[in-house]
């Protein structure tokens, strides 16, 4: 029962943060709501038994990546979003109804089959750092090492792109 309550609380915070992200005009507000979403998502991960991922979510996402976002927003001194006349009609006419249709369909399918789906029992399964570490350094060793190359490339790309033109 408690887990259901906890899920509902954090899910509500998630939904609220996501809606706030869309609603806010100023990017810094959006960024802060995104941090809220990520933090509460970490709690949801804990409910699912994914301890390692929850920790990484806080450290990398809410910590590193969002700091980067906030940093850039401040660096560029991004103000409130301007209302431009030359918007995209396609996005409004085609995109939004399309999105709504897809979302409603998915939601309908999920709620219809929802009660019959497998229940998640708290404490039944653990995504511990120990177990994931074993997996990463055995079965997924090569992809894991390749990610280091990916990050290196990303660092160099970021440096090159953000460098002031000569």
């Amino acid at each position: 029962m408690l887990e259901t309550v906890l899920f509902l609380i954090f899910a509500a915070i998630c939904v609220g943060g996501a809606i706030n992200l869309l609603a806010q005009k100023h990017p810094i507000s959006s960024a802060l709501s995104l941090i809220v979403v990520m933090g509460s998502l970490a709690m949801v991960y804990l409910l699912l038994g994914a301890e390692f991922v929850a920790a990484v979510q806080i450290i990398i996402y809410a910590g590193a990546i969002m700091v980067l976002f906030v940093f850039v927003i401040m660096l560029l001194n991004a103000g409130e979003e301007e209302r431009s006349a030359t918007g995209s009609r396609v996005a409004m006419v085609l995109g939004v109804p399309g999105l709504l249709a897809a979302a409603v369909t998915t939601g309908w399918v999920l709620t219809r089959h929802g009660p019959a789906s497998t229940p998640v029992v708290l404490g039944e399964f653990h995504g511990s750092a120990h177990a994931i570490g074993r997996l990463l350094f055995h079965e997924f060793l090569l992809p894991f090492e390749v990610t280091s190359v990916l990050i290196l490339v990303a660092i160099m790309g970021a440096v090159v792109l953000a460098r002031r033109g000569e």
Partner: peptide, 11 residues
Amino acid sequence: MVPLSWYLLLS
């Protein structure tokens, strides 16, 4: 005992 579909709905 939260059903899987709730998580998926949130997702």
